[in-house]
Design a protein around this nucleic acid. Sequence first.
DNA 1: TTGTTTTGTCCCGATATATGAGATAGGTGT
DNA 2: ACACCTATCTCATATATCGGGACAAAACAA
Lengths: 277, 277
Amino acid sequence: MDNLKSSRTGMIFLPPAGRGVAAKVEPRSAAGSQTLSRGLDLIEAVVQTPATLSELSKRLGINRSTVHRLASALADRGYLKLEAGEGYMLGAKLLELGHAARRQINLPRVARPHLEALCDSTGDAVHLGVLYEDKALYLDKLSGTRRVEIGSRVGERHPLCATGLGKSLLLDCSEMEWLEIYRAETGHGGAADPAYAAWVEQMRGYAAGGYSFDLEENEDRVRCVGAPIRDETGEIVAAISVSSVAQYMSDDRMAGLVATVSSTAGAISRALGWSGR
Amino acid sequence: MDNLKSSRTGMIFLPPAGRGVAAKVEPRSAAGSQTLSRGLDLIEAVVQTPATLSELSKRLGINRSTVHRLASALADRGYLKLEAGEGYMLGAKLLELGHAARRQINLPRVARPHLEALCDSTGDAVHLGVLYEDKALYLDKLSGTRRVEIGSRVGERHPLCATGLGKSLLLDCSEMEWLEIYRAETGHGGAADPAYAAWVEQMRGYAAGGYSFDLEENEDRVRCVGAPIRDETGEIVAAISVSSVAQYMSDDRMAGLVATVSSTAGAISRALGWSGR
DNA sequence: TTGTTTTGTCCCGATATATGAGATAGGTGT
DNA sequence: ACACCTATCTCATATATCGGGACAAAACAA
């Protein structure tokens, strides 16, 4: 049985998370404030699965009394909820705060420092973009330190199938969606189209590796390395790319850039609440 | 200017929240643990707008040193983030926790106790439902204590336009959407249709009041009072209704039930992170 | 430039505060 | 009936928190 999903609201009602065996969680650095840190440990100990008081006490290595005091304080304020027969679980306040956080955390500002670091370390032009109306919309651009300037501006929309950034936005799509998008963008494509077959073959490799290349496809003599940015749901919500003219972008250098770009994309993802990999 | 919204991901990038004058926040009950409570106060103090150390110190009436220790502890763990020139703002960890909370909090379980209380206090049948494929899908049902049984089951799908529960699911829709849904469901409707005009007139009243009635429209001799349930975004994600045969549902009694049903719906909404009204 | 007022960060003694052992009460299952 | 599980409460101890104050750096004004 598939999950019930309200077609209009998009809210999903999942079955209660299973009560698997929870690994002993190593409490984080008690930096600064023990009590506060323990309280946060408590919240995070319940992320995977609800737990009773003594379970939490064992996991965190804290006295039951202390756990009780902290947990009830958290429950009083809605950060946890004591469910009868289930123990403590995450509370509704966290939904509210998560929503508030999403309003405050905006992608361009969060990404900026990471993009600057990437630009400094590579010397090339760096782009940030999102999917918008079946195009890659550029939200930020940093010119590299090379002589040559890459001709692109914030606010411009570029093709999805022919740019490194655009391809990264599509890495999680199904092959059916790839076909649909490719057709919409190029006007051709299909099982019999050799150009499409080659493109899909490339995309499979990119999807498996979590990065993407642009080999002078969109603009002559311009090559890019792209990587996707994910939010707290794991969904791809944006992408970055490093671009330069072909003379600075040998195959070897591009292969080496993959790790760098992926690492930056991962850091931005984590700043958006992503907790994967 | 409208906000950029990725058509595929649905993620919205809002401009940074304005730095309005923030009212002095009265710290909640320091029940149990002062340190932990203050830490949580700190988080909640930056929900509306980012704030500097001394701003927070003033607002909460806590020494700057203490605020600094707590705030850096929170920042270390991602609950807050110190943005240069902006002060402290909500951190990415809250996105992660909000997402985890959404997986744990499932509507039927959260709603159950409230529905039971409502059923006990009214004596009538109580339903919980969501929008699913242009119908109202019943997720839970409690039979009342009356002799007569309302014939409906969990898992059934009922019309949107002719039930109290269904109408409540539609309260936030635009009039254009109302027309569309009404047409799809009844096969008629339009500016010239007197039945549709009357229906829309009723819906306007319901939308303004935040409740809905079913006056023997769906099933003969059955009347209902419905109210919408909202999540942390304020969106209507479900609805409840109280149903009984007409002999127990005088106009006066229905008018009186509005407050009761709305109150229950509000309580469930708050358990889903809603912070409105 | 210089002076003024922010910002975040750090230190350290006094004491308020969190801690944890243990006891209690209410369930649940055998 | 029992044993064993919850969550909750009390209280003496000492520890971790508190807050005054000092600091460097940055932002701002003159």
